[in-house]
């Protein structure tokens, strides 16, 4: 019996796509990352993220509550670094301030909700999005819904263990990793300009 490994690819995969974890996708260890379900070195994933962001038509960052709210020391600084990264990549920002299932009362032009993230993706015609600062279970749910119903390429910059349901996922994302990703984008932009 041959088994084709599951790939976390751009959708729309259809209503209720499987959780990638249930199809054997494993989370990366520190120093590693995931690209479309395969474990790769972190540096390779950062290069891929930079390429995706810089070649996107309409990239967006979706910062979650852990970054939007200045709830502990260091968050404001990290938020500033993320904003700088988004600006550098030419991406716009739509926040996910909380997880209330405000259906159907959100304004998809100004916010994204994890319970129906597809509305924001569709409304703004987003082709590449970056999740950061969203609590794990809500990020996984939203990433799965996006994969199920849209053709948006999903990237997760996760401070914890990473997200199988994103097409590219970094883990253990701290300030040094943010700085490194910023540096890669900066240098790739320089090369493109040259």
């Amino acid at each position: 019996m041959s088994i084709t490994p599951y790939r976390v690819l751009v959708g729309p995969e259809g209503y209720l796509p499987p959780a990638a974890a249930s199809r054997g996708i494993l989370l990366p260890e520190k120093g590693e990352a995931l690209i479309e379900g395969a474990i790769v070195p972190e540096e390779e994933a950062m290069q891929a993220i930079a390429t995706k962001l810089l070649s996107a038509k309409n990239p967006f960052f979706f910062p979650g509550p852990q970054l939007l709210w200045d709830w502990k020391e260091g968050v404001a600084l990290k938020a500033q670094a993320v904003k700088k990264l988004a600006d550098l990549a030419g991406a716009r920002v739509i926040p996910m301030p909380d997880y209330r299932p405000k259906y159907p009362m959100i304004n998809p032009a100004v916010e994204i909700n994890p319970n129906h993230p597809n509305l924001t993706i569709w409304h703004n015609k987003i082709d590449v999005c970056v999740f950061i600062g969203v609590h794990c279970h809500y990020a996984n749910m939203a990433l799965k819904i996006i994969r199920g119903g849209t053709s948006c390429y999903t990237i997760a910059l996760c401070g914890e263990a990473g997200h199988e349901d994103a097409m590219i996922s970094l883990c253990c994302m701290g300030m040094p990793e943010l700085a490194r990703l910023t540096e890669i984008i900066q240098s790739m932009k320089g090369e493109q300009a040259a």
Binding site: P63, L67, L68, W69, D70, W71, V75, A76, A79, Q80, V82, K83, V93, I94, P95, P97, N107, V110, E111
Partner: peptide, 17 residues
């Protein structure tokens, strides 16, 4: 005390928040 918006994202937060 936690109900503070990170200054970097103040401008993108929906008016409701």
């Amino acid at each position: 005390d936690f109900l503070r918006i990170s200054p970097a994202f103040e401008d993108v937060m929906p008016a409701e928040y």
